[in-house]
């Protein structure tokens, strides 16, 4: 019950704060419109189909990108765990590429790959693959030694040990990496859209801002927040499926 109550309460509080700022008129209404105006702007964007189109463009890029990137990252982590020389190479590449922001590679990627899906695939993979990879590698290397002894006493070979002991034990940390990568995937897509300026929520946000259509900018920001929440909830569902025991265990220990 409280699980539902708290977000509702927070949303209400946010709305109240918002409306208070509007009524206090500290900011001109032109720049900080009342909630009703924002809702109206959102509705009219939906009526024109603009909102759905932008959400679909951005959402499909970010969601497909996040799924692919997490699977590839975990796969590379598993491969690197099995092959130490591969791990050394990938760790070096990760250290070099991790500080590079998605925005930095977009102009060049547009040039090489055009404005289609290949651009987004490239940018998302290049900048987002490292959190799941690094989490997988470090979590698989840090299995509690007592559990490894238990596995050996049960007669596990390397593969059974990985499947029955090391991977489940690593799941909470791996999924923390997945959660992080999923957030960055959305950011990378939105930034790319802002820079390429053709379609998607990122593009629309800038277009509306430059046209000083402020209620629509706020409505779009709200939509981005919803998309981000939906992706976060999806990751949480995966987490409960694969590492629910860890949540329950922590909830009990706390």
């Amino acid at each position: 019950m409280t699980a539902l109550l708290r977000p509702v309460l927070a949303l209400g509080l946010l709305a109240a704060l918002w409306q208070a700022v509007v009524w206090a008129a500290v900011v001109p209404e032109r720049y900080f419109p009342p909630i009703a105006t924002v809702v109206q702007a959102g509705m009219s964007m939906i009526a024109r189909g603009q909102m759905q189109q932008a959400l679909f463009d951005t959402g499909s890029r970010a969601i497909l990108g996040a799924i692919a990137v997490n699977l590839i990252g975990i796969g590379l982590g598993l491969a690197a765990t099995g092959a130490p020389s591969l791990r050394r190479i990938l760790d070096t590449v990760a250290a070099i590429l991790q500080p590079v922001p998605p925005a930095a590679v977009v102009p060049m990627a547009v040039f090489a790959l055009g404005l289609g899906w290949k651009l987004y695939a490239f940018v998302v993979v290049l900048v987002t693959i490292w959190p799941p990879y690094l989490a997988t590698v470090s979590a698989l290397a840090a299995t509690n030694p007592v559990l490894l002894s238990v596995g050996r006493m049960a007669g596990f070979g390397p593969v059974a040990m990985l499947w029955h002991i090391r991977l489940p034990a690593a799941m909470p940390e791996i999924l923390a990496g997945v959660r992080y990568a999923t957030t960055i995937a959305l950011i990378a897509v939105i930034v790319s859209e802002m820079i390429t300026g053709r379609d998607g929520i990122g593009f629309l946000l800038f277009q509306k801002a430059f046209a000083i259509r402020i209620p629509e900018v706020f409505a779009l920001m709200f939509a981005v927040g919803l998309l981000g929440s939906a992706m976060g909830l999806a990751v949480s569902a995966v987490y409960r499926g694969f590492a629910g025991w860890h949540l329950a265990q922590r909830g009990r220990a706390a």
Binding site: V146, V150, H164, W245
Partner: peptide, 29 residues
């Protein structure tokens, strides 16, 4: 034919498996 009961029981049980599944682990061989 040799089994071990480890000192640190809280770490020697698999936290993602039930009591029954933890015991089944001992029968793999």
């Amino acid at each position: 034919g040799v089994s071990v009961v480890f000192q640190d029981y809280s770490r020697s049980l698999l936290p993602w498996k039930s009591a029954r599944e933890n015991v089944t682990l001992g029968m793999r061989r």
